[in-house]
Amino acid sequence: MRPFTYERATDAQAAVKAMAEHPNAKFLAGGTNLLDLMKLEIEHPAHLIDVGRLPLAAIEDTAEGGLRIGAMTTNSHVAADARIRSRYRVLTQAIVAGGSGQLRNKATTGGNLLQRTRCAYFYDTAKPCNKRHPGSGCGALEGLNRNSAIFGASDACIATHPSDMAVALVALDASVETLTPWGEGRRFPVAELHRLPGETPQIETRLAPGELITAVVLPRPPQGGQVYRKVRDRASYAAGLASVAVAGGNLALGAVAHRPWRADKAEAALKSGASPGEAIAAELAGAAQNGRNGFKINLVARLVPAALEEARANGRDA
């Protein structure tokens, strides 16, 4: 870990301003991801701007019948909110499927969206990794990459995005609100936040450098049942091997791509009357495996129909 300077931001405008003034600065929220990466010499910011105490920790009703979740709300707080538990249960289920109780108490909504991949080669600085060290190659490509992407991977990077929460947000058609370094507020779908790796896996989102996430906005919940199912090697505190969020007719997959994967081909097939099995097969027609992660295709094919059925049952109960 290298020496760094630290400041605590008092409001959002000041935070982005401080960012513009310091080269190689980073926002620090819960720190559950960033501090680990700093200790392991994967990230080396020279300056930290602590945004953890910005007044962005409320969950408010919106005029459109949805909710605005402040970027600094903790994962535990969001998962426990009565409105979210009753109307957006897929979100509560996704959040509590992630990390551990201790992590969720610290982790924030903004930080969770921007957490970095759990690729083992990314975590070991002795290995090549285009994401950590652009141009060095991808250690995972020919490596022990059982938990790599089956959608949208490139030869430069086959990592997956590890957030569970983000998968549910994508299925819920949520948006992010941001403040750019030039002081402008922006809003766009969570589904457009993360990028596919292409040739530049180090660029993970469409945020401008120094852009601050201020909130996540949930629209009115979609009609129909919701469910989040995550498959993992142990019952808790493990990254997913595959996950699925169902919210009405919306379907998103986790741990299968460099971003939460909106399964729009499957959604379209379902709308036109396909069976769940046929629908996910339509989506998986676009999947590719690299010799070690092929089981994920079978797993997703089994998981999604079961989740759709569970969501349908949940919808009837509601």
Partner: peptide
């Protein structure tokens, strides 16, 4: 490949 307790899975 596993170099921490997130990757090396002991039971929880």
């Amino acid at each position: 490949i596993n170099q921490d307790l997130a990757g090396y899975m002991v039971p929880v």
